[in-house]
Design a protein around this nucleic acid. Sequence first.
RNA 1: GCCCGGAUAGCUCAGCUGGUAGAGCAACGCUCUUGUAAAGCGUAGGUCAGGAGUUCAAAUCUCCUUCCGGGCUCCA
Length: 650
Amino acid sequence: MISVKLPDGSLREVEDGSTYGDVAAAIGSRLARDAAIAVANGQEVDLSAAVGDGDEVSIVTYNSELGLKTLRHSAAHILAQAVLELWPAATFAIGPPIEDGFYYDFDLGDGTTFSDGDLERIEEKMREIIAADQPFVRTVVDPSEAKVLMRDHQYKLEIIAEVASGQRKSDFVAEASGNEVSFYRNSDTFIDMCVGPHIASTSKLQHFKLMRFSGSYWRGDETGPSLQRIYGTAWATKSQLEEHLHRLEEAAKRDHRKLGTELDLFSFPSELGGGLAVWHPKGSAIRNLMDNYSRQRHEDADYELVYTPHLANAELFSKSGHLDFYADGMYPPMEMDNGTYYPKPMNCPMHVLIYKSSQRSYRQLPLRLFELGTVYRYERAGTIHGLMRTRGFTQDDSHIFVSQEGLAEELASLLNFVLDVLGDFGFTDFQAKLSTRPEGKSVGGDDIWDHATESLRAALTEANLDFKIDEGGGAFYGPKIDVDVKDAIGRSWQLSTIQVDFNLPERFDLEYISQGGERKRPVMVHRALMGSVERFFGVLVEHYAGNFPLWLAPVQVSILPVAQAHSEYAFEVASQLEKSGYRVSVDTASDPLGKRIRNAKGQKHPYVLVVGDDDVAAKTVGVNPRGGDVERDVPVEKFIATLDSTRQGD
RNA sequence: GCCCGGAUAGCUCAGCUGGUAGAGCAACGCUCUUGUAAAGCGUAGGUCAGGAGUUCAAAUCUCCUUCCGGGCUCCA
């Protein structure tokens, strides 16, 4: 007998030659059933692996993240097996688990691609493999044997070569040891190179669905071979799978492109060209409120509002370096009689020109320039996506010129400002990232990098913000903080960025006169809060699912007279509300009341007021709030008071 | 930019293997005058994204272009 130590510290004896699966069974039949893999002495292992005497063992079930990851990884293998059976000429590349699921990349041979209906066929084949209850059997061979096993599979051979030379890093592809390559065999005909571990047998996979296929590149290299990828999702239970699919449906309902059409906010007329939006009156109304609010907050925080043009001479972008580093992202040049002009991809060079327009004194610093500046970037055709990625968009862009000595304090207050404004738009769950100096080429000495990076770190700490560090993730010109927010359904969006820049002040030879009368170089800080107003708007639409809070709703109150006789009173109430500063519409259509309520609700108006005989007589309204219960006979003044207090709370 | 799929009325979509288009909603008109999520009847509305080709005949087949979607890649 040998003994193993369980997570609770207890020892359990099992017979010699037992597997981790036997350990699970010895603990309990339910655990044995739910077990995916084991962790022995910190290593993930197959349940079929032999137990070592004295192992510290914990059984991993499908209820854990690790268990699910294993299940999804194994699902990818089963997918590969199915595809290779259905497409005998196909070969396979890699197939890792990902969030909520898995994928596998294939080369079907002769440029063959997947098409509609293939997912069903593959899924059916997978179910056959699952029904066959094939065990995942691990074998370890040396690289030369591995090459024989994979002789028909060029991508696997490339991986073997990397494994042999110790270059391979991926967790899911192969054993990262120079002399051993591990494989998992499911049947006589299917074997895949893989580090594992895997579920005990194919029958453990029950609740999965193939989602979509798409193109991909081998190693993500767009100059390399094109592969065909299939994505799937897999879960431990049927209800988990159903919940996942339901979440996807709910997210689809919030899609800002769909709501943008339904709520008549904006559109992308094809006549206009890709990635360019027109804003309809209701969308514009919301955007205008956002813009005004943003400007007000900036003015209150001692920013100075500026405007700059949409075009600039090539020399400006040459001097700023954009033509060297960013030309691919810029719209093509326009030749004019007095030179070459470009639509601006960024506002910073123009703000620099404002700084340079006069001699600056230390007394003026920090100088904070702010603009809702519209820029144009030539995004590649396949990348544009609703309002989230457009070719023309407006940045809530600020450039702050500050002395080295003033940098730390400025960054700290800047971060608080950013978080405060984001909070007003309904975001309270933040995750930040601090990106430090990149390897290789970068501008500026160690001292200024260290100082700036430490100042950013201090700002994060002071703001009590959760952050991770992206070592070497900064731009060549300075370190930065990115702020992500979580939306109402838990999705993360990167919105704000605070970037220190040592480069532009050099390029433009910026200076200020210090207290001691010396010429000194200021540091520049780029800061976008919403980032792109368009994208931020899209995120807000999805965050609120179109149910904009009172202060942003394009129509705040719609008033419905029960019958035409009540129209006059409806308009009276409307004008009272308008006098109190609310956006109101009156629907006097001849449609039945129920229909008009439905319309107003469909447009997600925060309040629907119904007025009839009783209301005319008593100067009241029937209040039907979004997401609340109807309340009859509410005096108009009382309703306005309710609005006022809600607006305060927003 | 790459792979796959798509584009038919304002919106959502139907239109099988070729025989020049339909529905629901919306719009407009008439009737109904309504108390909390879809009243009835009628009218109008489409060079089937654009262009070229095959064919006696193209929404339908082929090619090109534009735009959209899902990914890949990209986002100094």
